[in-house]
Design a protein around this nucleic acid. Structure first.
Length: 820
RNA sequence: GGGCGAGUGGUGGAAUGGUAUACACGGCGGACUUAAAAUCCGCUGGCCGCAAGGCUAUAAGGGUUCGACUCCCUUCUCGCCCACCA
């Protein structure tokens, strides 16, 4: 046997890999006349020495899809890069006793090698690295644009904070099942602290982001998640006069946001958040000490304490809000169940119709009034939380609203209050401004300068580079210094040449990820972040694949950033991404999340590729199940795929010219048709099973026609690119490698519909919906003929039992159902 | 508590109104082998039956339909995201 007789995956893969990448086979061509497809997979953040098998799970299926599209005649952009700023690299560096740059410079080539070993069809000339100055220059530039537009502000904000990592964004904090909050990275306990923070005013784009959803093809659930995250609510801000114990006007007011002003006749108290500025202003001196103590305790309470408390805590301020409708005095409380950041930070308590208010009222002995009656007609006193009515009903005990449906009453009350000047219609959002600073070293420096007069000026001399972590800087340190510890970095001059100081916060982990995908389009441009005409050619992203945890917030921020660039006329469309799908998880063989604590269940992708070949690993990851679901790794499954690849390879010895086999011909055309449909539908798992069915048939044959073989190789190519290339080169007799002869630039085969059509087909015969026989009939048979054949069938006769059929349903080529 | 999604053999899954369990794993039986591995062949949802065949099964219950894993309602369970959001 010669060399080519044995399937040796290591040899085949090493050979083709080098040739492909040397010739940049998967080049994405700017302005190609072919139609474009931009297939985007979230770039990894290197946080360890090697690529994780979970990454491969995420990338393989979209990559197969991108190969399919290329063969279908599209100019495909399937790029890759490194999201390398932020905590992951810092933590990785600290663990390695090194610096972020050094560990990245080691890890990135390893990650890249793993991707090349997998044969990923990436145009590496477009590689990006978000922590390189030529990239972050533009992140800084865009931030300055935001600042110019008034969308970047410095604000006092309560933020999550932990000793080890400093300030964290909400998204970097996880809630454990017991209610405690910890940092996403390394599980440090976190607490709430007030800090000055740069924030981006994403809320200004809330409505644009809601409206833009119509322009996308997101699935309903992705759209719904965007809508929910934005959380637009229309209601009214009602302003109440505040009086003291004796009923004297204090000249102060409290404004409460509510979506349910219809229940205002049932309002019996007001609650303000501990952080609310009114706390200090309205609390009488005698009361102030006690109230301040409550506020302090509330703010310092851990999340665990807050959520584990059975009763809602609060304290009476000693003053009252006047309910103009009922002319009653509503005591004003401070309580930590009211959030400072949502609405006005003050809530009007309607205990009969809000569960939280009910619990609070019950605990403090406040009156509970019924102003809505449900379908049960119950108008008795509300004593249990189950009786609290929230969703529907009619108004009672509510003056001019009585008998009205609650929705109508809401409208009428809003108009009434506006007319009387008690309140104003108001729209509020759950969406919060995005925190844009952190007190860490490894991030984009914020290019702003504080003058002597404490004015803020932009520094357009970009990139503003991070100071280096020299051995001198690091000597005697365990953690990285923050920028305020680099004197040379801090001191600068303002636009008038006077001494000034730099901002020492850096940008958050996700700064680069808000726009990184744009840079793939023009990664080497030094004049602008990307050439507009190139953007016009490549954008929007056709499909975006990534981690399920990034489906909502990351997508929203990406859309916000893009819409901002659009408003500046810098990008060509209003929506950057047309479609989003998130991948499931790959669990260990023990059906649990792969974890370093159970190393025996952690799959090392390098080992898998070495032992079974990249083609097998790729095809296995495609075959294992639908992209968006979660399932365990199974080594036996991988072995089976390795066997399949080997079987497919061995078929080559049977290939001959001019073999006529109608069974194979039909099966081939069916296979091409279904695999094509399944690739279109992103169902790579069933596409692989179609390939298996076809190979199982070919295995039984002694000879295979060369044209069918060539077609099969092309269909196999996106899944198992190495073996496909090997077989393709061999069958075509290409002796020396030429890029244009690659199977991966060959066209996807067509199929012949006429060869698929069966002359006969099977019709199940049902009696009362149960299959009693299957009859074989010819193609253009009439309904009557089908019936005649069916009635002759012994089993059908048996079940008809000489009865006369009442109704007979015949669906052509599908089914015959006889109803007795 | 809210939103979204899912529940099908021993396992991963297939079928989105028309023969439920494709494809694959695992298991069982057999061939080859001194033996094992590898490979190949056969069987494999459950129950009854020698067989033909029958009954039964897609989380549970109900409904629509000639026909339901698929559509609708109720309940349960799991996953993800959000969560004292007024």
């Amino acid at each position: 046997m010669n060399d080519s007789a044995v399937y040796d995956h290591s040899k085949i893969e090493a050979n083709w890999k080098n040739k492909w990448f040397a010739d940049n086979l998967y080049e994405a061509v700017d302005f190609s006349p072919k139609p474009k497809k931009f297939i985007l997979a979230e770039l990894p953040y290197p946080s360890g020495k090697y690529l994780h098998v979970g990454h491969m799970m995420r990338y393989t299926v979209p990559e197969i899809y991108s190969r399919y599209l290329r063969m279908k005649g599209f100019n495909v952009l399937f790029p890759m890069g490194w999201d390398s700023f932020g905590l992951p690299a810092e933590t990785f560096a600290l663990k390695s006793n090194s610096t972020p740059r050094k560990v990245l410079d080691q890890a990135i080539p390893e990650y890249k090698k793993s991707m090349m070993d997998m044969g990923y069809a990436i145009d590496w000339t477009r590689e990006i690295d978000t922590s390189q100055p030529d990239f972050y220059k533009w992140t800084q530039w865009m931030f300055l644009k935001m600042w110019e537009a008034g969308l970047a502000e410095i604000k006092e904000m309560p933020v999550w904070w932990c000793q080890a990592l400093g300030v964290l964004a909400d998204e970097e904090v996880l809630t454990k099942p017991d209610g405690t909050r910890v940092s996403e990275r390394d599980n440090h306990p976190v607490e709430r602290k007030i800090f000055k923070q740069w924030v981006l005013k994403i809320t200004k784009y809330a409505d644009k982001m809601l409206d833009g959803l119509d322009k996308t093809q997101y699935t309903p659930s992705v759209k719904q998640a965007q809508v929910n995250w934005i959380g637009k609510k229309e209601g009214i801000n009602i302003t109440y006069k505040i009086v003291d114990d004796s009923g004297k006007d204090t000249k102060k007011t409290v404004t409460c946001f509510t979506t349910r002003p219809d229940t205002n006749f049932g309002a019996t108290f007001v609650v303000i958040a501990p952080e609310h500025p009114l706390v200090e202003q309205i609390t009488p001196k005698g009361q102030l000490g006690k109230v301040q103590k409550y506020v302090k305790d509330a703010l310092n309470k851990s999340e665990l304490q807050r959520t584990s408390e059975k009763t809602k805590s609060g304290i009476f301020t000693g003053t009252y809000a006047l309910n103009t409708l009922t002319k009653t005095k509503m005591p004003i409380f401070v309580a930590d169940y009211v959030l400072a950041q949502y609405g006005t930070g003050a809530v009007v308590g309607v205990p009969g119709h809000d569960k939280r208010d009910f619990e609070f009222a019950k605990h403090y002995g406040l009156p509970i009034l019924r102003v809505v009656v449900g379908t049960d007609g119950d108008t008795t006193e509300i004593t249990k939380v189950e009786q609290v009515q929230e969703e529907s009903g009619k108004m009672i005990n509510s003056g001019f609203l009585d008998e009205m449906d609650i929705n109508k009453a809401t409208d009428i009350m809003i108009n009434y209050m506006e007319e009387k000047g008690y309140g104003e219609k108001h729209t509020t959002y759950k969406l919060r401004d995005q925190i844009w600073s952190r007190q860490r070293y490894w991030g984009e420096p914020i290019p702003l300068v504080y003058t002597k007069d404490n004015e803020i000026e932009p520094d357009y001399n970009l990139p503003l580079k991070l100071p280096e972590l020299t051995p001198e800087v690091m000597s005697g340190r365990k953690d990285f210094p923050t920028l305020d510890q680099f004197q040379e970095f801090i001191s600068t001059s303002d636009s008038k040449g006077r001494e000034a100081k730099r901002e020492t916060d850096t940008m958050p982990t996700w700064a680069g990820s808000n726009w990184y995908y744009i840079r793939y389009i023009d990664p080497k441009n030094t004049e602008e972040f990307a050439n507009y005409d190139k953007l016009k050619y490549w954008l929007p992203v056709d499909k975006y694949y990534g981690d399920a945890g990034h489906t909502t917030a990351h997508l929203l921020y990406t859309r916000f950033w893009y819409k901002f660039l659009y408003d500046l006329g810098l990008v060509p469309h209003t929506e950057p991404i047309m479609y989003r799908m998130s991948g499931g998880l790959l669990l260990g063989e023990d059906n649990r999340k792969m974890s370093k604590s159970r190393p025996e269940f952690v799959v090392n992708p390098e080992d898998a590729v070495q032992n079974y070949g990249a083609d097998a690993v790729r095809t296995y990851l495609a075959f294992i199940g639908p992209y968006d679901e979660t399932y365990p790794w199974c080594t036996d499954g991988l072995k089976a795929i390795a066997r399949f690849i080997k079987n497919a390879f061995s078929l080559k010895f049977k290939v001959k010219n001019n073999i006529k086999d109608t069974e194979v011909e039909k099966a081939y055309n069916k296979m091409v048709k279904t695999v094509t449909e399944m690739c279109e539908g992103f169902k790579m798992n069933t596409a692989v099973s179609q390939l298996m069915i076809f190979v199982n048939l070919l295995k039984k044959k002694d000879e295979i026609d060369i044209d069918i073989w060539k077609g099969f190789i092309r269909v196999l190519a996106p899944f198992a690119p190495f073996v496909a290339e090997e077989l393709w080169q061999e069958i075509n007799g290409f002796e020396t490698w030429k890029k244009e002869n690659s199977v991966h630039l060959a066209s996807w085969p067509d199929y012949d519909k006429t060869k698929i059509a069966d002359d006969t087909f099977q019709v199940p015969v049902q009696i009362n919906g149960k299959v009693r026989a299957v009859i074989e009939v010819t193609k253009d048979i009439s309904e009557d003929e089908v019936k005649a054949i069916a009635y002759k069938n012994e089993n059908v006769k048996k079940f008809l039992n000489s009865q006369i059929p009442g109704k007979v349903i015949y669906i052509k080529e599908k089914i015959l159902n006889i109803v007795l």
